[in-house]
Each structure stands twice: as C-alpha cells, then as structure tokens.
Amino acid sequence: MKNIIVGQYIPGKSFLYKMDPRSKILALFILMVSAFVFKDITHIIYMLLGVLVILKIGGIPIMRIARGLRPIMILLLFTFTFQVLFIKTGPVILDTVLTLTTINIGIMILAIVVWYYTRRYIKSKFFYMVLVIVGILTMLSLFTPGTVISSSNLTIYEDGLLGASFIMVRLIIIVTLSTILTLTTKPTDLNLGLERILKPLNLVKINSEEIALIISIALRYIPTLLDEANKIMLAQASRGVDFTEGKFKDKVMQIISLLVPMFIISFKRSDDLANAMEARSFVPGNKRTRIHILSWQSRDTLVIVFCLLVLTATVVVRVYL
C-alpha cells in the first residue's frame, strides 16, 4: 500500500524539464496526431527512432520507459496476436498444421505445470511465458506422434505480420510520448498547463480552472486517503479481520469494513476542506492570482514549430507517397 507513487515525475535537468508544460502538452498532442497519420511500417519505424533520439537528448533512461510499458504489455500482445491471425492478405509467410495428439497433449500439460511452478524463480516472467507458448506451438506443429485428437491450420500472411507490428509500434510510440510528459513534468505543472490549454473552453461555459482544481485536489488527497485506508485496515485487523485470507463471504465483509469508513472519511474531509477554503475566501469562479507563473520561452516556440513541421511532413508523406 505504501509503495504506490502517484505521478511518475523524476527530477532531472535536461531541456525537457525546462520546457513550459503548455508546450509539452501541445507537442505531445501534435506528435500523437502524426503517429496516427502514418500508414506505412517503414515510416513509423523512422518515427520510433525519432522518439528514441528525443529520449537520448532528454536524458531519460530507456528502462524507465520500458517499465511504463509493462502494464500495457498484455494489451500489446493481445492486439498483436489478433492482427497476425485475422489479416489474411499478401504473401504467405508460414503455413503449418497444428496437431493435437495423445502424446504431445501430455507434454503440453507437463510444460504448463512446470511453467506454473517455476515461474516465480524466473526474473523476466513475461518472456518466460512467451517462450513457453512459442515452444508449445512449435511442438504442436512439428512433433506429432500418437493418435490425432484434433488439428487446425495456422497460416500467417505478410500483411498480417506487418500490420500487427505497425500497430504495436504505434502504441509504443504513443505510450512512450505520454510517459515522457509525465516523467518530466510535476503533477502541479501539468495541471496548470492543462488549465491554460483548456482555457478557450470557457467560451462554451466549461470552466477550465475548476477542472484543474478538481484534478489537483484529487491528486493531493490520494496519499492522504491511502494513509487513512492503511490505518483503518490496521484497526479492523485488530478486530479480527484477516485481510489476507478468508472465504468469498468473508472477503465481502472485509471490503465493506474498509470501504464504509473510507467513504465517511472522504466526505468529512471534503467538508472540512470546503470550509477551510471558504475561510480563506475562496469563491469559485473568481479571478485568482498564482504563485507559479508559466513563462513561454523561445525554446518552447522552437519545439512547437518543429512538431508542426513533423506533422506537415507526415501529411505530405501520407498524401503523396
């Protein structure tokens, strides 16, 4: 519970840190649009290289980004598999028959059992899993003694593979770009930048300041509420609630015993906060001055111009090539 860090900001000194949050958000937006404009695998790989160059210049370790990609690994794998299997155009790359027989089904189950019990000892669990899956598939296509139980065709087309890689690269680019933004911008700065960028929405009666305030209060209270949750868990544990075990019925009770107090505390806190803000003469919608004033510098203009050039280039490439 204590290890949850909100926002991934890590302090640094590169130009990415010196940029105005507004220009960073805008640049992210423009680059994301260009990532969607590309249609060709080679072009998008050039863009991926470009993103890697940004990482290098910005002094962001690639491992940090890889860690950011981990949660969406399953999603990436999922899209990849389906793309590979369902796009059926272009030349055939691989055409094989997967055969399930009485003997290799046993080996398959054995492999899964061994994987299940040894995975905790392997450091990169994900690659271990992929390795086991690929191994099983290879065995199913090549090693087929015994009585045949069932068999199915596995055909992979070039377009399928390319399309799948294309979508993967695009997703990786988008996630990497947004990770760069959150890694190099403090949550408060991000919030302020967002507020300024959404300011035109005031014309259609959407108050960007209030949205920004809601976000910043929510961010501010996450650690506090985690702390409270921890205290309540300890208090309920003293009353015999064992959060680590129990049947389903007990689990429901355990969660209720945590959630009800959490709701009550949150309401109480928000009440107190509203009073405290009012006592300091906060009136929603009134003009407020700020401690931190964003300053747009020439480097920000430069970055935006560069991003716009990239966007133009992608559009040109898309239309004429």
């Binding site: 409270e228 205290k231 309540i232 300890l234 208090a235 309920q236 003293s238 009353r239 209720i256 015993s257 959630l259 009800v260 107090p261 009550i264 505390i265």
Partner: peptide, 9 residues
C-alpha cells in the same frame, strides 16, 4: 486505535 470512531461501519 487513536480516533477509533473511524473503524465504525
């Protein structure tokens, strides 16, 4: 606990 009233549910 201190502030045990928060454990009521």
């Amino acid at each position: 606990f201190q502030f045990p009233e928060y454990q009521l549910f």
